[in-house]
């Protein structure tokens, strides 16, 4: 039967050590069945018991604390997903953002109007122009319906636009960042800012004309970032 849990699974579900759950079974504090010398829990009973006692359950797999897993968040991948566009039109912040939102590859049913609204709201709060002619518009909180992996859309503008950036320089590159979680967002952001710190990369951006070349340059910098 699939709804039977072993000691180990039950302990993980309850977020406790196996020794504790085994002791509770011995003390008769938790509903358990004994079968051939081992104990089992009926998942349904265990859940209702936990609910009755207000013990929070830890659903699913344990959170990936594995550093190898985290490494997989790569800026270059995100850019590849989001795409690189050249000569994006618009002379005001609003126009540029509206144009960018149109270009982002997102699922059909995704509400792009609300995305634009969120981006503008964020822009009102404080400029996302982070200096050196680059802006990184993003919504304040992760929006619903975003895919699990990060998306970064890089748009090289046709005309430089004043984003009211901190260093007052007009913006020529807009990198729209869309992430499903805040953690993911922060990771992408730290990689992006690492890249932008390199003056060589910045001068490359100024006359970048090929998407592949951009991604390649990002990959090189990324490796540097990972190794510290």
């Amino acid at each position: 039967m699939s709804d039977k849990l072993g000691l180990e699974e039950a302990a993980r579900l309850l977020g406790l050590s196996e020794a504790t759950v085994a002791r509770w079974v011995r003390q008769g504090r938790i509903p358990a069945l004994r079968e051939r010398g081992r104990c089992f829990f009926v998942e349904k009973h265990l859940r209702s018991w936990a609910k009755k006692h207000h013990i929070p359950l830890k659903e699913g797999r344990p959170p990936a604390s594995d550093p190898a897993e985290e490494e997989r968040v790569r800026l270059s991948e995100a850019i590849r997903r989001g795409g690189v566009f050249f000569g994006v039109k618009g002379r005001t912040v609003e126009a540029v953002l509206a144009e960018t939102v149109k270009l982002v590859p997102l699922p059909e049913n995704f509400d792009k109007d609300s995305l634009l609204e969120h981006l503008l709201q964020r822009e009102e709060l404080a400029s996302t122009g982070i200096g050196e002619g680059v802006a990184i518009p993003h919504p304040r909180a992760p929006l619903e319906g975003l895919p699990g992996k990060a998306i970064v859309t890089a748009c090289f503008l046709e005309h430089e636009v004043d984003f009211k950036a901190i260093d007052k320089k007009p913006v020529f590159l807009v990198c729209l960042i869309l992430c499903a979680t805040t953690q993911l967002h922060l990771k992408i952001l730290s990689q992006l800012s690492f890249c932008l710190r390199s003056t060589a990369f910045l001068s490359f951006l100024k006359d970048c004309r090929s998407a592949d070349e951009l991604i390649k340059r990002v990959e090189v910098l990324e490796d540097k970032f990972q190794t510290g």
Partner: peptide, 13 residues
């Protein structure tokens, strides 16, 4: 955390 859970399971419901 465990202390609290220990208390909880000793409650009679």
């Amino acid at each position: 955390d465990r202390y609290r859970k220990e208390l909880i399971v000793q409650e009679e419901i």
